[in-house]
């Protein structure tokens, strides 16, 4: 399959602190790729470089190239990159002053969409894709903050999907959720990959094994191993990987 995103020699810093180091890897279209590794290994930094969110932090910078369909995203306007590469964050962050409907429609309205029928259709489709429609269809005008934690996270996924991105980045989307809500999001990821290319950061190895086609293992800012998920977990090629996935880290 064609590479949707190609990363070449990507390094990123916070001030003088290097967070990721010379990473080269590709993400195939319609694949779910998981990025695993211990806390602080640079997983989140890596995916935040892919939609240029990294540079929104003061003193943060990145070097190297990230290509989306062959185009270097660091040569495109950041705003248009972020419209093509959506993101879901660790902690659900719906807009609390907006209704559920307005949360989902927010991105489209940013793009200048005002037609009510178009918005209605997009909200319906996005909430259905995020497996939230049945739970909220009668309360679309309620505040986004009135939902449960798992629902809020699915609302954030719907909000990201509404602008029809090509790639969806998920930064530990289930870390604040209970097992039932987590299972719902994992099912959802499985459905999403038919339409989107998904990159998910997780510190939960079972989650990576359940949802991902390919898995990358990061340690201290370096890409240690990147392989088909089954191969990585069953026949790790690196000693470090094996130690990590068997819990013998030290």
């Amino acid at each position: 399959m064609a590479a949707k995103i190609e990363i070449k020699g990507l390094s990123a810093w916070y001030g003088s602190k290097k967070a990721i180091l010379d990473i080269t890897m590709d993400f195939a279209e319609h694949d779910v790729t998981a990025i695993i590794g211990p806390s602080g290994c640079g997983k989140s930094t890596l995916i935040r470089c892919l939609n240029r969110m990294h540079e929104t932090i003061p003193k943060a910078r990145a070097e190297g190239s990230v290509r989306l369909d062959g185009e270097d995203i660091y040569e495109l306007p950041a705003v248009s990159v972020r419209r093509r590469i959506g993101m879901v964050f660790q902690k659900a962050n719906p807009f609390p002053t907006m209704s559920i409907y307005d949360n989902v429609a927010a991105g489209l309205r940013l793009n200048g969409e005002r037609n009510r029928d178009t918005l209605d259709a997009a909200v319906l489709k996005s909430l259905q894709s995020a497996a939230l429609w049945d739970e909220v269809k009668d309360s679309l005008d309620k505040s986004g903050a009135s939902l449960s934690g798992g629902q809020q996270q699915r609302l954030c996924i719907a909000r990201a999907l509404a602008v029809e991105p090509e790639v969806l980045l998920m930064d530990e989307p289930c870390s604040a959720l209970d097992p039932i809500a987590t299972a719902k999001i994992e099912d959802l990821i499985f459905d999403l990959k038919r339409q989107y290319t998904v990159v998910i950061v997780t510190h939960n190895m079972q989650q990576a094994a359940r949802v991902a086609d390919k898995t990358a293992f990061l340690y201290l800012g370096k890409l240690i191993e990147f392989n088909a998920t089954r191969d990585l977990f069953e026949r790790p090629g690196q000693e470090l990987t094996e130690k990590y996935i068997t819990g013998r880290f030290g």
């Binding site: 939609n51 929104t56 964050f89 962050n93 719906p94 909000r159």
Partner: peptide, 17 residues
Amino acid sequence: PQSQREAALSLGATRWE
């Protein structure tokens, strides 16, 4: 919270938006 700004930026909002 910073997460609110990030939510908008990740949708493709400019700084003013």
